[in-house]
Amino acid sequence: IPCETPNLIESKSFKLYLNSFNNTRFADASEVLARLRSDLSEATWRGSQVQGSVGVRLLEAEQFDAQQVHELDGLLLDRLDVECTRYTPAPELLRANHDEAPVNETLVSNLLKSNCLVTGQPDWGSVQIQYSGAQIEQEGLLQYLVSFRNHNEFHEQCVERIFMDIWSRCKPIKLAVYARYTRRGGLDINPLRTSHPGALPANVRTARQ
């Protein structure tokens, strides 16, 4: 979905939409693809003077065995032996060393956990943080990510919050925050927030998904 669209596809409504086809017959997969692209494009651009199209790719059953599982690339923060005592978002834990030369780093954690804003059910995720700028203190960043443990918010909102907290507290030159959440309701939700244009991450599932 292009970032310029006035609307996003809400995950629960998307699940209900897909289930509405349970008794529908299509001639072939290309007809399914065309219908999805048409309906999703209309929903995302609804109310806008500008119109566009979303991207849709179907993965058919005979292709399942060829799919790969791959962990997010980067230095794993979870290796650190730190005590975590904060369980609601604590951006004050974020610090960066502005007295040293800037770095380019990719940091990863599998300990992101928040709760659904509607149901309260747990949402577990892996998060990848890529940045250029003053080096972010890794211990504080890990404690910050763990601090989402009791927080109630949607996946997309959590990623936006993480991005803005790092951006305002650590002041990187460039920043991208990408999360892959465990599947609930049959849908992958993998939000990406970035400060700069770039290729989308490869859509490869992690083992936790």
Rank of each mutant, 00 (worst) to 15 (best):
E100C: 08
S48R: 09
E100A: 15
S30Q: 14
A34V: 00
S109W: 13
F26S: 04
R37W: 00
S30I: 07
Y87S: 09
L107G: 06
Q67W: 02
V69E: 12
D99K: 15
V108H: 07
V103I: 09
S109P: 14
S30F: 04
L112I: 08
N115W: 11
C116E: 12
Q68I: 13
S114C: 05
Q68D: 12
L58Q: 06
L76D: 14
N22D: 11
D99Q: 14
A101C: 10
T88D: 10
A101Q: 15
V108D: 06
W45L: 00
A61E: 05
P91W: 03
N115F: 13
F26Y: 14
Q49L: 07
T88I: 15
T106L: 12
V32R: 04
G55Y: 05
G47T: 06
G74K: 06
R37F: 02
E71V: 09
D39K: 02
S30L: 03
A29Q: 06
D28C: 09
V69C: 07
E92I: 03
E62M: 00
S38M: 05
R79Q: 14
G52P: 02
Q51R: 04
F64S: 02
A61D: 07
R86A: 10
V82E: 07
D28W: 04
D81C: 12
Q51K: 02
L80F: 09
L107N: 03
